[in-house]
Amino acid sequence: MVAGGFGVGKTTFVGAVSEINPLRTEAVMTSASAGIDDLTHTGDKTTTTVAMDFGRITLDQDLILYLFGTPGQDRFWFMWDDLVRGAIGAVVLVDTRRLADCFPAVDYFENSGLPFVIALNGFDGQQPYNPDEVREALQIGPDTPIITTDARHRADAKSTLITLVEHALMARLR
């Protein structure tokens, strides 16, 4: 699963590493949601993901990994329970300029017990805060990896997924 706040780059992340163009259903923002979605730092984004984006990676002849981007808005959370079962883990993408946006996802995965990693998506190539500062700010335990990434780049997305699966494996073996 790929989770995180509105406009944080979930679809970009999925698209960077998927072998198919992400299948998506996106809705054009309407004025009715102006009070709900914070566009302060995403001024040129006119659509948001209200269903789910997903991509696919064929890892072996009989092994296909699906990446599901969770709906970015709180009111679509009911989809998450459906995705958690059978999931390997979650990448929580974080825009450190809007740190609070990731609180719901972090809370959700902490409560569900699904292994997750926090990936700081560097917008404009910038990482204004380092992982230790974010760990402190989010009060995340030392067991949960916090890494930096660039959701636009396949190598970064792949490396993030590897970190997640390693973490999930460690969690299972513990």
């Binding site: 990676i57 890892l59 072996d60 590897i162 699966v165 494996l169 073996l173």
Partner: peptide, 27 residues
């Protein structure tokens, strides 16, 4: 249906995780 360890709430088992990890590294 996806494999899962029923005793662990449907979470993927260790073998599957290892295969996924190995597959990702080979990408």
């Amino acid at each position: 249906q996806p494999g899962g360890d029923e005793s662990a709430g449907g979470q993927p088992d260790v073998t599957l995780l290892e295969r996924v990890l190995s597959g990702l590294r080979k990408l």
